[in-house]
Amino acid sequence: MSGSNNAPFLIGEHMTGGYGKSGPDILHDCTIAVDPGEIAVIVGPNGAGKSTAMKAVFGMLDLRKGMVRLDGEDITRLSPQERVAKGMGFVPQTSNIFTSMTVEENLEMGAFIRRDDFSDTMAQVYDLFPILKDKRRQPAGELSGGQRQQVAVGRALMTQPKVLMLDEPTAGVSPIVMDELFDRIIEVARTGLPVLMVEQNARQALEIADKAYVLVQGANAHTGTGKDLLADENVRKSFLGG
């Protein structure tokens, strides 16, 4: 059963919750969604719950209220592993590659849930990230930060996900590398895959966002297209330094 035309492809709706059964709520009635071919970004100040919102969508958080739906199906009760099997590709911010394995072995590890021939997918990943093809025999730990992030994204793509979720993909990389990663992320979205990402570099993220969510203290503060939010005086003053 597929979602009806007015329901987003992936939505975490009215999410309230925190870590553990008794931890305090970090998210408060928070909603984030993304559709095929779109880049949706979650931005906001430090400690706003951006990564927590993403983790809630991925099932790493106990929701007290709200639900998560993927392609019309309620997946709120599923574990992260079960969500991967349903088509979620999640790239955490840290520990997202096997440093002692080669680039190609990392990509093969990404295909662990597949029982079919994944050579076509690997060719697509190498088309998207030519540098990985060049370095496919190198241990991933020898790569630069930006190249490691490409390995991590490529590994998630090997599962042929229905949605790609990236937690701060440009953390700790230079502005040039950030632009390069964003270009690759745009290419991924152009293949029709929905991309949901948490990003510290708010201004740059809003420039490529079809849909954007500004979170403050775990709640939705502003929602709109990236362009709308870049043009919004309140957003500019509060979050983009004027």
Results as ranks from 00 to 15, higher is better:
L157D: 03
F112W: 06
N46V: 03
V125E: 06
V91M: 13
Q138F: 06
L240G: 00
G242K: 12
P45V: 15
G141M: 09
S119G: 08
G172I: 11
K162E: 10
L206I: 01
K65T: 09
L132W: 01
H14K: 13
G110W: 05
G141E: 05
V57A: 15
E108K: 08
L157F: 06
Q138K: 13
L70V: 05
Q124R: 11
G145F: 06
E108G: 13
Y126S: 05
G110C: 11
D116Q: 12
G3T: 08
E187A: 11
F90P: 12
V43T: 13
D71L: 07
L230H: 03
K133I: 02
M109P: 00
M158K: 07
K227F: 10
N46T: 08
K211R: 06
A53W: 01
G226L: 09
K86A: 14
R155L: 08
V198Q: 04
G23E: 02
T191G: 13
F9W: 01
I32T: 05
V198R: 03
G3N: 15
T191E: 04
T102L: 07
M178G: 11
D35L: 09
V151G: 04
L10M: 10
F90W: 04
F90T: 05
H28R: 05
D74I: 03
K237E: 12
K50V: 03
T99D: 15
L164V: 04
L143I: 01
V43L: 11
G141D: 02
L107H: 05
N96V: 08
M15H: 07
G18M: 03
T31F: 10
G72M: 11
E180A: 12
A48M: 05
M165Y: 06
G44Q: 07
A40F: 12
Q81T: 06
L164P: 00
P45N: 15
Q93N: 09
T16A: 09
G146Q: 03
H28T: 01
M67N: 12
A48Q: 06
V173S: 12
I186Y: 00
V235P: 04
T94H: 10
V198F: 04
T16V: 06
Y19N: 03
R236S: 14
D167V: 05
A231Q: 10
D29L: 10
A85F: 00
N46E: 08
Q200D: 07
G154R: 08
A189P: 00
